[in-house]
C-alpha cells in the first residue's frame, strides 16, 4: 500500500490538530483517536481501531504530564505505528510488533516537544519587555508560541511519516526476528514507567491501603475498571468519615505482596 500526496497532507493536518489538542486540553492527542483518524484517511479503519485500542492501553500510564514532565508521545504508535501496521499488514506485521517498533518514534517526538518547550523558555523576559513597551502583539506571540510550534511540528510529522512508507518498510525488514520478539517483551514492560511515574507524584504513606486494594481487586478478583473506581471510592469515604479512628486499617494481611 502506498499513500497519495493528498492523503499525506490530510494526515499532516489531522496530526497538527491533534497535537495542538494536547495543549488546549481536548484529548485529541491520544493513541485511540490518532490511530482512528489515520486509519480513516488511509482507508483501513479496522486496523486503525485495533492499533489505537492496543496503543491506548499501553500508553495510558504515559498520558501524564505531571509537573511539566514530558512523557513519550502517543503520536509514535498512534501515527507512525498505525501507518506501519496498515502498510505492512500483508507482510505479516501484527499490531503488537508495530507498537514496539513505534516506541523509538514516541521517544523522538517527546524530545522534539521538550525542545519546543525550551525554545520558548525566555518567555518571561520576552513578555515582560513586550508589555512594558505596550507591544501587546508581541506579548500575544509569546503567549501562543508553543501552540504554533506544536501545529507546525504536528503537520510535518504526519506528512513525512505518510510519505516515507517505503523507508519505514525497509527499516522494519532489516530488523532480525530475535530483536522483534525481544522488543515485544520490552513493550510489555514499558507501561511500568508510566504507572511508577504517576504513583511517584501521588503516593504518601496513607495511600498504601489504596495500592493494596487495587492489587487485590484486579489480581484476585479481576474487577472491571469501573468496579475498581467504586472500590476506591468506598475506601476514600471510609477514610473521610472515620478519620482518627484507625480508618485505614484495611487489607493489612496483604502487606508482603506489594513492595511499593
Amino acid at each position: 500500500m502506498d499513500a497519495s500526496l493528498g492523503q499525506a497532507l490530510l494526515v499532516g493536518l489531522f496530526v497538527s490538530f491533534c497535537l495542538i489538542g494536547q495543549l488546549i486540553g481536548i484529548y485529541t492527542n491520544r493513541a485511540i483517536f490518532l490511530a482512528f483518524g489515520v486509519g480513516l484517511i488511509l482507508g483501513d479503519v479496522q486496523t486503525g481501531l485495533l492499533m489505537g485500542a492496543t496503543a491506548e492501553l499501553a500508553f495510558m500510564g504515559f498520558g501524564v504530564g505531571a509537573g511539566g514532565t514530558v512523557p513519550p508521545n502517543p503520536i509514535g504508535p498512534g501515527v507512525v505505528g498505525t501507518i506501519m501496521a496498515i502498510a505492512m499488514k500483508d507482510s505479516g506485521m501484527d499490531v503488537a510488533t508495530a507498537l514496539s517498533l513505534s516506541f523509538p518514534f514516541a521517544v523522538m517526538i517527546q524530545f522534539v516537544i521538550t525542545f519546543i518547550y525550551s525554545l520558548n523558555a525566555g518567555s518571561l523576559s520576552w513578555a515582560t519587555k513586550a508589555i512594558q513597551e505596550g507591544n501587546y502583539k508581541s506579548f500575544k506571540l509569546t503567549s501562543n508560541f508553543t501552540f504554533i510550534g506544536f501545529g507546525v511540528f504536528g503537520f510535518l510529522i504526519g506528512l513525512v511519516a505518510t510519505m516515507s512508507i517505503d523507508v519505514l518498510r525497509a527499516f522494519v525488514n532489516i530488523i532480525p526476528e530475535w530483536l522483534i520478539s525481544g522488543l515485544s517483551v520490552a513493550g510489555g514492560l514499558l507501561p511500568a514507567i508510566g504507572f511508577a511515574m504517576i504513583l511517584n507524584v501521588m503516593i504518601k504513606k496513607e495511600y498504601i491501603p489504596a495500592i493494596l486494594l487495587g492489587y487485590v481487586c484486579i489480581s484476585y478478583l479481576s474487577m472491571p475498571v469501573i468496579g475498581l473506581a467504586f472500590a476506591g471510592a468506598i475506601l476514600a469515604f471510609n477514610n473521610f468519615f472515620n478519620k482518627g479512628n484507625g480508618g485505614s486499617a484495611i487489607e493489612q494481611e496483604e502487606v508482603i505482596e506489594d513492595g511499593i
Binding site: F195, L199, G214
Partner: peptide, 17 residues
C-alpha cells in the same frame, strides 16, 4: 485515594511479564 486504587490495579494488569 480513588486515583491510587485505580492506578495500582491497572498497573498490574497492563504491565505484562
Amino acid at each position: 485515594t480513588i486515583g491510587v486504587t485505580v492506578i495500582s490495579g491497572l498497573s498490574v494488569s497492563f504491565v505484562k511479564a
